Every structure is written in structure tokens, then in C-alpha cells.
Simulated scan of single mutants.
Amino acid sequence: MVWLQYTATRRQRAATAGLFLTGAVLIAVAARLSYANIEPSRAKAARRREVLEAFIARKRAAAAGAGGADSHPSPDPAKP
């Protein structure tokens, strides 16, 4: 069984190479932009986590102060 009956013309090979290179460049640009946006996202997630931990700590302190039977112990202090 023959995979390709006819060989590609020079123009077809050039078009294939051009499309391949265009795709490779687009992937490289997307990867670069993705890595450029990682650090701001990490900082935003860290800040969100800190706010959530503070909120939970306030709720636990309020529940412990009320003397509820199902109150939880206070969380460990935040590590620097």
C-alpha cells in the first residue's frame, strides 16, 4: 500500500513548512504569555488565602468566646 501516490510540489512543501512554523510560533507566544502571568496570579491567590484564614480565625474566636458546645480550638498562629 502506498502512503502518498504523488510527491508534494515545492509550493506545497513550502506552505506546509510555513503553517508548521506559524503554529510553533503561536504556541511559543502563548507559553510566554502564560508564564508572564503566573506570578500576579500566585500573589492574588496568596492574598485571598490570607484573607480567608483571617476570616476563619475570627469566626472560631467568636464561637469559642460564646462557649458553644461545638466550638473548635483556635488555629495555629500564622507562620512568617
Rank of each mutant, 00 (worst) to 15 (best):
residue 55 F to Y: 11
residue 14 A to Y: 00
residue 38 I to W: 05
residue 42 R to K: 08
residue 39 E to V: 08
residue 8 A to D: 08
residue 28 A to K: 01
residue 53 E to Q: 04
residue 3 W to G: 02
residue 9 T to I: 12
residue 53 E to Y: 10
residue 27 I to F: 12
residue 80 P to S: 10
residue 27 I to N: 02
residue 10 R to W: 09
residue 3 W to F: 14
residue 80 P to L: 10
residue 14 A to C: 01
residue 43 A to P: 00
residue 41 S to V: 14
residue 47 R to M: 12
residue 29 V to F: 12
residue 68 G to F: 11
residue 22 T to M: 03
residue 34 S to V: 12
residue 26 L to E: 01
residue 74 S to H: 09
residue 46 A to P: 00
residue 29 V to Q: 05
residue 12 Q to A: 13
residue 39 E to Y: 13
residue 26 L to K: 00
residue 4 L to N: 06
residue 16 T to G: 00
residue 71 S to V: 04
residue 10 R to I: 10
residue 6 Y to G: 10
residue 47 R to S: 15
residue 66 A to I: 06
residue 23 G to R: 01
residue 56 I to Q: 00
residue 20 F to I: 07
residue 9 T to S: 15
residue 72 H to R: 07
residue 44 K to D: 11
residue 71 S to E: 03
residue 11 R to K: 11
residue 13 R to M: 04
residue 59 K to V: 11
residue 31 A to C: 10
residue 6 Y to F: 15
residue 29 V to E: 02
residue 49 R to H: 14
residue 27 I to Y: 08
residue 14 A to E: 00
residue 52 L to H: 08
residue 20 F to T: 00
residue 50 E to P: 00
residue 52 L to Y: 08
residue 62 A to F: 07
residue 65 G to T: 02
residue 77 P to I: 04
residue 62 A to N: 03
residue 25 V to N: 00
residue 44 K to V: 14
residue 69 A to V: 11
residue 28 A to V: 06
residue 70 D to M: 06
residue 28 A to E: 03
residue 52 L to E: 06
residue 17 A to C: 03
residue 5 Q to K: 15
residue 39 E to N: 08
residue 45 A to Q: 06
residue 16 T to H: 01
residue 28 A to H: 03
residue 40 P to L: 04
residue 4 L to R: 11
residue 65 G to A: 15
residue 33 L to C: 13
residue 38 I to R: 04
residue 47 R to T: 14
residue 76 D to H: 02
residue 49 R to Q: 14
residue 6 Y to T: 14
residue 74 S to Q: 08
residue 2 V to T: 13
residue 71 S to W: 01
residue 12 Q to D: 04
residue 43 A to F: 08
residue 41 S to N: 05
residue 17 A to H: 03
residue 19 L to R: 08
residue 64 A to E: 14
residue 13 R to H: 02
residue 79 K to A: 09
residue 33 L to F: 15
residue 66 A to T: 01
residue 48 R to V: 14
residue 34 S to I: 04
residue 30 A to D: 11
residue 70 D to R: 10
residue 55 F to E: 02
residue 28 A to C: 06
residue 71 S to K: 05
residue 62 A to S: 05
residue 38 I to C: 05
residue 62 A to Y: 07
residue 49 R to K: 07
residue 32 R to V: 15
residue 26 L to N: 00
residue 38 I to L: 11
residue 12 Q to C: 03
residue 64 A to W: 13
residue 59 K to N: 04
residue 73 P to V: 09
residue 23 G to D: 01
residue 73 P to C: 07
residue 8 A to L: 11
residue 6 Y to K: 11
residue 10 R to D: 15
residue 21 L to C: 02
residue 10 R to K: 10
residue 30 A to Q: 11
residue 36 A to P: 01
residue 54 A to S: 00
residue 4 L to Q: 10
residue 28 A to D: 09
residue 18 G to F: 07
residue 53 E to V: 05
residue 26 L to C: 05
residue 53 E to A: 05
residue 10 R to A: 13
residue 48 R to E: 14
residue 8 A to W: 03
residue 19 L to E: 01
residue 52 L to S: 03
residue 24 A to M: 03
residue 51 V to Q: 08
residue 48 R to D: 13
residue 72 H to Y: 06
residue 46 A to Q: 10
residue 4 L to A: 12
residue 68 G to K: 02
residue 76 D to K: 02
residue 2 V to Q: 12
residue 73 P to D: 01
residue 9 T to F: 15
residue 4 L to Y: 15
residue 40 P to Q: 02
residue 58 R to C: 02
residue 11 R to D: 07
